[in-house]
Computed example of a mutant assay.
Amino acid sequence: MDPNFDFTGYSPECIDAMKVLDYVVTGGNGTATVRTPPGQVGGGNVFNAICDAVNQGGEICNIETTITSFDAECEAEVIGTELVDLMDGEEPIELQLVQVTKSGSFDVSTTFDVCDSNGEPIPDLEGITVNGTIDLENTVCEAPVLMCCPNAEVGDTIDCSILEDSSTISPVGTRLDCSDDPGQNGLFITYLFTICQALQCSEEVKLEVMARPCRPRRPIIRPTQECIFEPMPNPCSRVFPTMHDNDNNGNW
């Protein structure tokens, strides 16, 4: 703290606050294969054209995938304790072993081209987009996390929130089923993804601080919109009214 800080108007106050005991960001990895039926692959006869191109030595190429939305949540539960040597010269510390589980799903959008046998994109089969949904239940592998939550017991839950912007996904394989079986044919894309989460355990504490009442800021005055005066139209000003030659004499 700045030793020159002016404490005028401040006084010791006791406040309730949440002290963060431990905070960590982790992630769970998973794989999933999403099937897109033929009618949803570009529409029309696009799927058949893809099958023809692949049968002639072509392949699906230039694949890009993004996560478009989340409808998911996570839960973190203390499942035990573990004595850990932090290698800091002090006695081992007892940490809580926390297991994360996820539920819900997220939506993905994938765009790809179909390349010929020479690796060149086929003009009519570029920029094809398919959409799908990945279910998180039983698809994510979560390693237990060690956390310092001394007042948590086995069965207690820890605050857990999914970090959507930090999560990633990559397509790792594609498969085409060009058969006539309506329940089995289509485009299959396999994804590898990492869904990140923030874990935090907190404890309510009372703190003594130097404080003063918070004053409101000055209001921002909204600018006044001035009305603009429109001049009287006078398109005939060059011909009327006009001054007579003898106007200097006061006559019209």
Rank of each mutant, 00 (worst) to 15 (best):
D156V: 12
T157W: 11
I189V: 15
N248L: 13
S117D: 15
D52W: 07
K19W: 11
I169S: 09
G127L: 00
I93Q: 15
M232R: 10
S179C: 09
A143Y: 02
E94Y: 08
V154K: 15
D245V: 14
T157F: 12
K102S: 11
F229K: 02
L187C: 07
D247F: 06
V78S: 13
I93M: 15
E90T: 14
D135R: 06
D85T: 12
E64Q: 14
D6K: 05
A17K: 09
C14G: 08
N185V: 13
C61M: 03
N118G: 09
D107V: 02
M147G: 11
Q99N: 10
D113V: 03
L125A: 08
F188M: 11
V54F: 05
Y23Q: 11
A152D: 13
T68C: 00
L146R: 15
Y23E: 14
E59C: 08
F106S: 03
D116K: 05
V154N: 14
T81Q: 15
I220Q: 04
G119D: 05
D180T: 13
T36M: 03
E73A: 15
G186D: 12
D16A: 08
T242I: 01
F188K: 08
W252S: 02
C160G: 00
P3A: 00
G57L: 10
P219V: 07
G43L: 08
E137I: 07
V145P: 02
I189A: 12
N55H: 12
A72W: 09
D180P: 11
K19I: 10
L86E: 15
S105V: 01
A211D: 00
P241Y: 01
E226R: 11
L97N: 14
I169P: 10
I128M: 00
T65W: 07
L21Y: 05
F70Q: 09
G155L: 13
F229C: 01
L187S: 08
G127W: 01
E137Y: 08
G30N: 03
N251C: 06
G43N: 04
G132Y: 00
V114P: 10
V100H: 00
L176C: 05
F112A: 06
I79W: 12
G250T: 06
T101H: 07
R238S: 11
A211E: 05
L95R: 15
E64V: 14
K102E: 05
N118Y: 06
P216C: 07
L176V: 02
I79K: 14
S179T: 12
D71V: 09
I15H: 00
S105N: 01
G183K: 14
T242S: 07
T111R: 13
R222P: 00
D181C: 03
L163D: 06
C149H: 13
E153T: 13
R222K: 05
Q184S: 15
S117Q: 13
N62G: 04
D88K: 13
S117P: 04
R212I: 01
D116W: 05
M210S: 01
S170F: 13
A49L: 14
C214M: 04
V140W: 06
G39F: 00
F112T: 03
L207C: 09
R217Q: 03
